[in-house]
Amino acid sequence: MTVSPENQKLRPEMETDTEGAREEALRRAISGGARPAKPNGIATSFTFGWRALLKIKYIPEQLIDATIFPIMFLLMFTYLFGGALAGSTGDYLQFLLPGILVQTIVTLTMYTGVELNNDITKGIFDRFRSLPIWHPSVLVGALMVDGVRYTMASAIMIILGLILGFRPEGGILGMVAAVLLLQVFAFSLSWIWTTLGMIMRSEKSLMGVSMMVMFPLTFISNVFVDPETMPSWLQGFVEINPISLVVTAVRGLMHGTVTFAEISWVLVAAVILTAVFAPLTMYLYRNKN
């Protein structure tokens, strides 16, 4: 031991001194929490959005789905199937890009549901639920950040597509409108996953179920091929598949051939999904055991 006797003597005194100061700081801090005015739902939604952005900052890997995957899929499908399905990769790209864009964004809608499920398993869910706030903002905030993800993925895919030879006749306006419409649909679809996120026991089971739903829905659609070559019973399904409705509208907007009815169908689907699953999610949220 190299501690000198003076030092040893000093130590307990210092300790009590800081302990006393700590105690005083504690007392002040505890009584210092004045109650501010209750914030509105928009403010708390933005706060939850800030939380979701921080999560991206700390776990940047979660952006792989929104960046690397779209590039991979677009390249793979264009060059694997283009020649066989449309005669040339260039022609196929005109058809494929809007479809695969929808498929990619639709797969990203699972995020908020999965995060919600994580919050429940970890316990912070209880903290949020015991706060005097507008409770849907927990999810609305996260969904707003999902919008950032969608925009990022869309931009990457469209830019890569343009480099590869995608020539949309709807121009920039058409592409922006297509991405916006897709975002509206994605927002409404997210509520299915938040509902399941409230019910499923774990992130894994939630992912399993959502893959089971999304895989057939995106493939048995008009994302990759024109349904005309399919047997008629399958065509029937493809036509009512909401994913096909979205793909038709997005394709139409990008190529400048969209009809009012095509856009309306997507909006109707979005309203129905939100009207059913958003209240259902919040009902489960309030009554979670």
């Binding site: 501010p36 914030p39 403010a43 708390t44 706060t47 700390y58 912070i124 209880d126 706060l131």
Partner: peptide, 27 residues
């Protein structure tokens, strides 16, 4: 206010960020 048996803060965020989060939510 409730402090649950399990983590009732966001483990991915820093201590300060967690307190800011709650503070903002309270107004």
């Amino acid at each position: 206010s409730l402090t649950g048996q399990f983590a009732s803060v966001d483990e991915d965020l820093t201590g300060l960020e967690n307190l800011i989060l709650i503070g903002r939510l309270m107004g």
